[in-house]
């Protein structure tokens, strides 16, 4: 187990190192006009060169890269080009918002997806199964930005017109200002992310439950006289969950790097919004940091998935 963890961590570090090099190279292959933008319209070439020098952009690319990695290892991700705010500060402010959004939604979609999937699999081809499958397919086909906007239109705009003010039009209220406003601001984003994601989990759980319920050991468990509920949950669901765990790990990992779409639709200043804003401003230090952070989240999520795998399915040995 320990050896497995060490190896996977080393492998993850290599992946991150490759991605950092890739992103860095990409940025410096492209002509950068940051210094010119910063200097303003009437700047002399000397001013532009000075700014270039101050930002360290006149050094050869490998020197810039080594400098970046050296500082990053000490927890310094540089400053953003425009306001001279440390990138770590920007990320520190955006991260709690993305985490609140993703973890809340994850609980919802996992519960909804797995529950619906199991209900579908217990009575395949029943009316309930067909309805749940159609429901899942509908939301699976729904782009998340469209669902978010529709929820805003009906649940914020139309309700507010009708004099019922439950949901705000967007924005974020930090948890320290109280649980009420926090939940109120996050509930529509949670539902958006959860409904779109739950669809995949319903289909995944249903398919793998159907496979598992056809196994001999399920028949054995039933013929031993174990209660049906226990057969389904303890014997069936446990081994049916492995593909669900894989998907869950990837999804949460990817989203923790920034739920770009949901954050944009609901004006939540999280990591995804920060990356998108950095894109429009050509603010490279922020983009490099968010890409690396997002990749790190995925790498860590994958390691956790492999460990959970071994716990759920004793046949999987970690070595």
């Amino acid at each position: 187990m320990l050896r497995f963890l060490i190896r996977r961590t080393a492998l993850g570090a290599i992946v991150l190192w490759l991605i950092s090099m890739l992103v860095f190279t990409l940025f410096f292959v492209a002509p950068s006009n940051v210094a010119r933008t910063l200097a303003g319209r009437q700047a002399t070439p000397e001013t532009v060169a000075l700014i270039q020098h101050r930002l360290g952009l006149d050094l050869p690319i490998w020197q810039q890269y080594v400098g970046f990695v050296g500082r990053a290892l000490r927890g310094d991700l540089g400053f953003d080009y425009y306001h001279q705010v440390p990138v770590t500060t920007i990320i520190g402010e955006a991260m709690p918002i993305t985490i609140s959004l993703v973890l809340g939604a994850a609980v919802l979609w996992l519960a909804l997806g797995v529950f619906n999937g199991v209900m579908s699999a217990i009575r395949p081809r029943s009316f309930l199964d067909r309805s749940l499958t159609a429901f899942a397919l509908f939301f699976y086909s729904m782009p998340s930005f469209l669902l978010g906007l529709l929820l805003l239109y009906f649940l914020y705009f139309q309700l507010t017109l009708a004099g019922i003010r439950i949901f705000p039009p967007g924005g974020y209220a930090p948890l320290r200002d109280g649980v009420g406003p926090w939940v109120q601001h996050l509930i529509l984003p949670w539902v958006t992310l959860a409904l779109v994601s739950a669809a995949i989990y319903t289909r995944l759980t249903r398919a793998s439950m159907l496979d598992v319920l056809g196994e001999d050991y399920i028949r054995t468990a039933r013929s031993k006289g174990i209660a049906e509920r226990r057969v389904i949950v303890r014997h069936g669901l446990r081994s049916a969950l492995t593909p669900v765990v894989t998907q869950f790990g990837i999804d949460v990992g990817v989203l923790l790097g920034g739920a770009v779409v949901t954050e944009t639709v609901f004006s939540l200043p999280g990591l995804g919004k920060a990356s998108l804003d950095a894109l429009t401003q050509q603010n490279q230090p922020v983009i490099i940091a968010t890409v690396l952070l997002g990749s790190a989240a995925v790498v860590v999520a994958n390691i956790i998935v492999d460990v959970v795998y071994a716990v759920l399915d004793p046949r999987v040995r970690l070595n």
Binding site: F27, G253, G258, V260, V261, L279, Q282, G294, S295, A297
Partner: peptide, 20 residues
């Protein structure tokens, strides 16, 4: 394949489009 399946799609797209 493992790496390609786990790279955050939208973030890399943002990085790429910021260049091209």
């Amino acid at each position: 394949v493992d790496v390609a399946l786990t790279v955050p799609f939208l973030l890399v797209a943002i990085a790429l489009v910021s260049i091209t």
